[in-house]
Computed example of a mutant assay.
Amino acid sequence: MADFRFCLLEPIKTPLVNKFYDKNNARGRATKADQVWVVYKELEIIAACRVQDQSGQLFLSTLYVDEMWRGQKVASQLLTAVADAQKGTVFTFVYQNLIDLYLQNGFNYALTLPNSLQSLFEVYAHRKVVAMHFTRDTVPS
């Protein structure tokens, strides 16, 4: 099993994740206001995502795993690490081909969205995405 390191990136290192996104032609740009989560294999970023504050709502976006590392549960482990670190509900918009991945990692379909995210969803709807959410289980396991 590969030795991956999952971590929340310091805001000053935000340009590193944008270089990763650019190298892989991934949509989206991280800002220093985002929670930027990365997966390192040794010193190289092999996956990343962002959690943004959208008018008080947590919004997960730009989850991307380098093609060379796909199929090794990197996305699942990153989703778990990110979700475990949040308090409250995390929303995301998921491409059709990735719905099962999110369902397997504790996300459910969002039947309604807060107003700020509803307007954002309308912007992205042409990409054939589905609104989903993850809510931290408050009952200790």
Score class of each variant (00 low, 15 high):
Tyr124Glu: 15
Thr89Val: 15
Asn25Thr: 05
Leu117Gly: 05
Leu101Gln: 04
Arg70Pro: 15
Val130Trp: 02
Asp3Ile: 05
Leu98Cys: 10
Leu43Val: 13
Lys128Asp: 14
Ile45Lys: 01
Phe107Thr: 02
Cys7Phe: 04
Cys49Trp: 02
Val130Met: 10
Ser141Cys: 07
Arg70Met: 11
His133Lys: 14
Glu42Leu: 12
Phe4Tyr: 15
Glu10Thr: 08
Gln72Gly: 05
Leu16Ala: 13
Tyr21Gln: 03
Pro15Ile: 02
Met68Gly: 10
Lys128Cys: 07
Leu78Arg: 09
Asp66Asn: 11
Ser141Gln: 03
Asp53Val: 12
Val129Trp: 00
Asn25Arg: 12
Asn108Ala: 11
Lys87Val: 12
Ala26Tyr: 09
Glu67Ser: 13
Gln86Phe: 05
Arg50Met: 09
Lys23Tyr: 10
Arg29Gly: 00
Asp100Leu: 06
Lys13Ala: 14
Leu120Ser: 01
Asn25Lys: 08
Leu63Ile: 15
Ala83Lys: 11
Lys41Tyr: 08
Asp84Gly: 05
Lys13Asp: 15
Gln118Asn: 07
Gln118Tyr: 08
Thr62His: 10
Ala85Ser: 15
Asp34Gly: 00
Tyr64Ile: 11
Asp84Met: 11
Glu42His: 07
Tyr102Ala: 13
Val65Cys: 03
Ser76Thr: 13
Ala26Phe: 13
Val36Cys: 09
Val82Tyr: 04
Phe121Thr: 04
Ala48Leu: 07
Leu117Lys: 07
Arg136Trp: 05
Asp34Ala: 03
His133Glu: 14
Ala30Cys: 14
Ala48Phe: 06
Ala33Phe: 10
Asp22Leu: 10
Asp66Ala: 11
Leu120Pro: 00
Phe4Ile: 09
Asn25Ser: 09
Val36Pro: 00
Val17Leu: 11
Val130His: 06
Pro140Thr: 09
Leu78Trp: 06
Ala47Ile: 15
Leu79Cys: 08
Val17Pro: 00
Val130Pro: 01
Met68His: 12
Thr138Lys: 10
